[in-house]
């Protein structure tokens, strides 16, 4: 599978990375080189092999339904949440106006 300029531009748009035409053009051979190389995985016979789900045998732990049990994962920390915001007003984050 090799990518062309249009595909690279589409991927850049999906990834929300603005790219100039020249940048797109430059990335085409780079991606093709890498994709061409990873495609050797197609050689591997994986019949009957399930994709790996857990690196180390372990089961998903569940949390108790308790509010703010740990301050590091609880709410009520608006100042901390907004502390690094590029735009914060009246307790909200601000973003350029969105039309739905």
């Amino acid at each position: 599978m090799s990518v062309d300029k249009a595909t690279v531009a589409k991927i850049a748009s999906l990834a929300r990375i603005r790219m100039t035409d020249a940048e797109v053009e430059a990335m085409v051979p780079e991606l093709n080189q890498i994709l061409g190389w990873v495609e050797q995985l197609g050689e591997v016979d994986c019949a009957g092999i399930e994709p790996m789900t857990a690196v180390i045998p372990n089961t998903l732990r569940l949390r108790d339904d308790v509010v703010d049990a740990d301050p590091l994962t609880g709410g009520g920390v608006r100042e901390k949440v907004l502390a690094n915001a590029p735009a914060a007003e009246h307790g909200f984050f601000g973003v350029p106006k969105v039309i739905e």
Partner: peptide, 21 residues
Amino acid sequence: MIGTYVLSAGFYDAYYNQAQR
């Protein structure tokens, strides 16, 4: 870009799932 491409519609199984296998 690579990651977005290999997960994009139609490629997920051939790339990501194959890699996880």
